[in-house]
């Protein structure tokens, strides 16, 4: 009977989980570098596999920078709920006095801050390597910021659905990829239309709308999925 008087504020669950996850990833800093390294390596391999002419690279750069960023977020997605599932923390989340969707949103936010945000921030460097015309840099960063946030929300559903499966990696990719498609199309197009000299406000607006929609739908869906899969 200790509870009622010291009840934490509503966003407390979100902030507490966010703070814990950030602390955990800071103590395992080496894992933080993985998606960035993946991004860097694949972008390095690309000209070696295709052709280093600046004209060709510049024309495929918007799409390639986006696709590689998408793959880099997929790389760490499987582990989003895995640790918490294996040590029973997910069960504690469910029995917590806080709503599960806020807890989940906290985890997704931490995931985005540690993968999506760094990827978006380093993307101009890689854009230079791929000879993307400078007019596309800002569009690339902005579209990746919004796009990786949407992908984190969608990907969390995939991670939640497959958390109890031994070999969940492959099925996670299959579940998540079709849902990523609109983000990829709109995001890559934002960059190429910025390069072509058209505005990219429309694409950013679409991504923003997508983010709003994902924020409304996904936390509840992820919480529902976890209630089923985490107790297997």
């Amino acid at each position: 009977m200790t509870m009622p008087d010291a009840r934490p504020p509503v966003a407390g669950a979100w902030r507490a989980v966010l703070a814990r996850d950030l602390k955990l990833s800071w103590r395992q800093r080496s894992d933080l570098v993985n998606p960035l390294l993946f991004y860097l390596i694949t972008i390095t391999l690309l000209p070696l596999g295709v052709d280093p002419s600046r004209q060709l690279l510049g024309s495929i750069a918007p799409g390639m920078l986006w696709i590689m960023a998408l793959l880099a977020t997929l790389l760490s997605l499987d582990s989003l709920f895995r640790c918490d599932y294996e040590d029973g923390t997910l069960v504690q989340f469910q029995l917590s006095s806080e709503p599960l969707f806020l807890t989940v949103l906290g985890k997704i936010t931490a995931y985005w801050l540690t993968t999506g945000l760094p990827l978006a921030l380093v993307s101009p460097l890689l854009a230079v390597m791929l000879a993307l015309p400078p007019s596309g840099y800002l569009a690339l960063v902005l579209s990746l910021l919004l796009g990786t946030a949407i992908m984190a929300l969608i990907g969390a559903l995939g991670a939640a659905l497959t958390v109890c499966l031994r070999a969940g990696g492959l099925i996670l990719t299959l579940v998540v990829m079709p849902l990523y498609l609109p983000v990829l199309i709109i995001g890559a197009n934002a960059v190429s239309s910025a390069v072509a000299g058209f505005g990219y406000g429309r694409e950013l607006a679409l991504l923003g709308a997508g983010l709003a929609l994902a924020l409304m739908v996904m936390p509840a869906a992820v919480a529902g999925a976890l209630r089923v899969s985490a107790n297997q």
Partner: peptide, 10 residues
Amino acid sequence: KVCAILALVG
């Protein structure tokens, strides 16, 4: 249940 959730999000 998980298939239904995925279908609905779909």
